[in-house]
Amino acid sequence: MNIREMVEVLNGKILVQNHDPDEELPRGGAADLMSDVLAFGSEGMVLLTGLTNPQVVRTAEMAGINVIVFVRDKTPPPETLELARDSCISLIRTGYTMYEACGRLYQAGLPGRGPVRIENNSW
């Protein structure tokens, strides 16, 4: 699935575009906890999140994530847009909840990372 197709599936709107719409997305992931993103985020993954503060962009930058989708029609503050432009991260907004956005993308063929093996509740 490429960025353009994802935006269609999510009925989304591109807020900051730093990537070619034809760029392929390897997998999807969803989280609100930034440590989770840092631990499980993989290069190129699309991150679906309910948070819109600038730290989400920073976290994505650190985890090598290029595309962030804000769920439930949340409009990020200007600082977030600014930082995304600066850090070469693309931002997209969708009206769906995180659950439904995941559901639709998975249904449309965007894979996840598979089961997680952890020890001791750590990651």
């Binding site: 499980f40 559901g103 993308l105 998975y106």
Partner: peptide
Amino acid sequence: SAFPTYEVAGRLYHLGVGR
């Protein structure tokens, strides 16, 4: 579940939960 949120949601949605 051993799977992350994204896939658990995907599978539930596929089953018809919340559709």
